[in-house]
């Protein structure tokens, strides 16, 4: 599962390096936040315990590690793959789920603030593409299901 999202060759190098720890804002500010430990466990096949840890959601995706990394790799890859895995199992902060539900329903993360817009003399907001977005999302899910079934019958 993890090999679909992670390049293990780069990750192994990363496990031996650890250089970007001191420039990672979450490593510096959040007690217990340490992607080096997560990477070590992934490489040892012990990543399960991180799926329920709040730390995997504390990566800010600031891409500082990626930019400073000699392999343009970054701690964040390990953290992202853990979050993806956790989310697949339905484990995520409540707010993440709320945001996701709103996106799927409305195609946005909020509606334009109409009274304030009026007061400021701003023009009518343009139409959103919500209908088209929903159609595409349904299509995407349908295709995945079909592929999944095709895979299964091919086995």
């Amino acid at each position: 599962m993890l090999d679909a999202t992670l390049n293990f060759k780069l990750l192994e190098m990363c496990g031996r390096c650890g250089a970007c720890f001191s420039i990672c804002p979450s490593c510096v500010n959040i007690p217990g936040y340490d992607p080096r430990a997560v990477i070590k466990d992934i490489l040892a096949g012990n990543h399960e315990k991180w799926l329920t840890s709040r730390h995997i959601w504390e990566c800010l995706e600031c891409h500082h590690c990626l930019e400073i990394c000699f392999q343009h790799y970054g701690f964040e890859n390990a953290m992202t793959s853990m979050r993806t895995l956790a989310a697949k199992k339905g484990i995520h902060p409540a707010q993440v789920k709320r945001g996701w539900d709103m996106l799927v329903k409305t195609s946005r993360l909020g509606e334009p603030a109409m009274p304030a817009r009026k007061k400021l003399g701003l023009p009518e907001p343009k139409a959103t593409g919500s209908e088209e977005f929903r159609k595409l999302y349904e299509l995407l899910k349908k295709r995945r299901l079909e592929e999944h079934q095709a895979d299964k019958s091919g086995e």
């Binding site: 989310a87 995520h92 996106l103 139409a127 593409g129």
Partner: peptide, 19 residues
């Protein structure tokens, strides 16, 4: 006309990269 959420990576990408 027609824009939706960009979408917000930290939210959407974690749940569904394809979306």
């Amino acid at each position: 006309d027609g824009f939706t959420c960009c979408p917000e990576k930290s939210l959407v990408n974690n749940i569904d990269h394809g979306a």
